[in-house]
Amino acid sequence: MKKLATFIITALSAFSLSAFAALNTEQNLAKEKGLILYNQLKITSALPYLEEASKAGDQDSQYYLGESLRKRNRYMTTAAQKWYEAAATQGNLYAMIQLGRSGNDLCVEMKNCPVSEVKPTDWLLKASLLAEPKAQQGDSEAMYLMYEATLDRNWLEKSAESGNSTAQFWMAISTRQGEGFVLPWKRKESVAHWFKASAEGGNPRAMMEYAAYLHESGGDLEVARRWIKTAAERGYESGVTSYGAYLAHTPERFGFELDLVKGYAITSLLKELDEGGSMQSYVEEVLPEIAEKMTPTQILDAEKFADQWKKSHPPLSFFPDKLGR
């Protein structure tokens, strides 16, 4: 217990100072590049960039490097644990929670989990001890992390009610799955409420879910179209895919006005996601279908529009959960 208390005091100091490693320009660019690639599910490509910033002591990069290594191997490896622990000793609660979850990792069944001086349950306890004071003070992110560390749904609800868009998204998902006490005839309404709140908080995944709800429930399609467009403008892969397809009427949904130039241009942006699942086969199928309806001049205009879009919008992203499973 004395060892645990010592760790907590040290970690609390680090947590209050955040990441104490100052990156130089080159290291900061490497971090940014690594995070872009990570969010595009280009895990292997992201590794050298995240490693450069991690070796410089940046705790966010250390955490995402741990995530990348774990996801690439699909279980907790020695290398992944090393970087999670590096981030955790700087007070990174996300890293502590992932280390805490390693007690249920695939490596347990494989009987090859990395050796650690700290038990998974102790990592979760440490995360809780650090997060709870901030949560009690009204910090909505800390409330959400308390939920992740304890699986107490009350914390999820408190975080959502305090405006955390991630918690609001998962409140919608869990409510849709039948969790929580909600009157049966009020459940869909509750799901929509939380998706809408999360969308308004900037969560592009919730934007697409809320747009789908409006479409399915016969709601305001103008509002639905606006959320799809906003999700695309944020760079969310699903938003870009849907916005491009619906503008080009491949298929026609949500009542978007036909715009072949924009539809082709936005769909062509997806070529960049060449490591993110089956995206290339989708692009190779849909782009020619749109091009058949276009003139050569329109295709040139679309290429110019796509170039302008890339310069004025965030990079494409799948927006994976920060606390990935």
Rank of each mutant, 00 (worst) to 15 (best):
E161N: 15
W185E: 14
P314A: 13
W194V: 13
W83E: 01
V191K: 02
L247E: 06
E157G: 06
P204D: 07
A192C: 09
A224K: 10
I36Q: 07
L65W: 02
A21Y: 04
P296Y: 01
Y64K: 13
E284F: 06
T175P: 03
Q62S: 05
N164M: 07
V261Q: 04
L4G: 15
A149N: 04
N112G: 12
Y243R: 04
A265Q: 08
L65C: 08
A197F: 00
S278W: 02
K322A: 02
R325W: 00
T230D: 07
I290W: 01
Q27F: 04
Q177S: 13
V191N: 02
G324L: 01
K119S: 12
L65Q: 02
G178F: 03
E189I: 14
T267K: 00
A302M: 09
T297Y: 01
E209T: 05
Q308M: 15
V286A: 11
A19F: 06
A206M: 06
A149G: 10
R74A: 13
P184D: 14
V283H: 01
M171C: 06
A88D: 03
S45K: 10
Y147F: 15
T297R: 12
N203E: 07
A131I: 12
Q81A: 10
T175S: 11
S268T: 11
G66C: 07
S140F: 00
A131P: 10
W155H: 04
L247W: 03
I173K: 13
K229F: 04
G66H: 02
P288Q: 12
A95I: 07
Y75A: 15
F319Y: 04
S317I: 00
M110R: 15
K71S: 14
K188A: 14
K134P: 01
A46P: 09
R234N: 09
A135W: 01
G66L: 09
K229W: 01
P314W: 00
V283S: 03
G163Q: 06
K293G: 07
K186T: 12
I228C: 02
G244Q: 03
N154K: 10
R234H: 06
E141A: 15
W185L: 12
T6C: 04
A30R: 05
G218D: 03
D321A: 13
S278D: 13
L29N: 14
C107T: 08
A142H: 01
T150G: 02
E85P: 03
I228F: 00
A21N: 09
H249L: 13
A172Q: 08
T297F: 00
Y243K: 09
Y38M: 07
N73W: 02
N112V: 15
K196L: 10
A21H: 04
A5R: 03
A14Y: 07
Y49E: 11
E26G: 08
G244W: 00
S268V: 07
C113A: 04
N28W: 00
G180L: 05
K262E: 13
E252R: 05
A167W: 01
L258R: 14
Q27S: 12
G103E: 02
Y213K: 12
R74N: 14
A265C: 12
A197Q: 03
T297G: 13
V115D: 05
H215R: 15
E303F: 01
M207P: 06
